[in-house]
């Protein structure tokens, strides 16, 4: 009788232990997955094309507004090239400067791009060097 009682008690204890451990593990996994997904979303948003397209277009637009005739501007676009490669956009198609209409287009994905106007009336030559990952803007007379 004593042996039976002891075994019964042992089995119950074993059952109780796994019952408290199992939900804790599941809960921990759910939390890790949840916060992992949130972190991934935040990272993707911060490194997304939307942010860099706008930042580059406005930066380049203001640089061209400030520039004087004969200036050569070198601008780092390494992060933009990385994002464009992920989205299968050629580096040569990232920045397009239209001197006649006076705007700069930046495209880092196939989902459109961002346009910003500059008011200076110069002929702007732009090219991207893929080895140095730099954009060169040469300001010439129209």
């Amino acid at each position: 009788m004593k042996k039976r009682k002891y075994r019964k008690l042992l089995n119950e204890k074993k059952g109780d232990g796994s019952d408290t451990l199992y939900p804790t593990i599941i809960r921990t996994i759910v939390y890790i997955v949840f916060f992992g997904l949130i972190s991934f979303f935040v990272y993707k948003s911060a490194m997304g094309a939307l942010v860099y397209e706008q930042a580059y277009a406005k930066d380049i637009g203001l640089l061209l507004d400030k520039a004087r005739l004969g200036t050569t501007i070198t601008y780092d676009v390494s992060k933009g090239i990385g994002i464009a490669k992920e989205n299968e956009v050629l580096a040569s198609n990232i920045v397009h400067v239209n001197s006649d209409e006076g705007y700069v287009d930046v495209r880092l994905s196939s989902h459109g791009g961002y346009r910003y106007y500059f008011f200076t009336n110069y002929d702007v030559e732009s090219r991207i060097d893929e080895t140095t990952k730099k954009l060169t803007l040469i300001i010439n007379e129209k």
């Binding site: 979303f41 935040v42 948003s45 911060a46 997304g48 939307l50 942010v51 706008q54 930042a55 406005k58 203001l62 507004d65 400030k66 008011f119 200076t120």
Partner: peptide
């Protein structure tokens, strides 16, 4: 996060100063 990263970056203050300078 979505609102923060899709917000318009305001550079108009700089732009009016640049037009004045020009």
């Amino acid at each position: 996060v979505w609102l923060f990263y899709t917000a318009n970056v305001d550079v108009i203050d700089g732009e009016v100063s640049l037009l004045y300078e020009k």
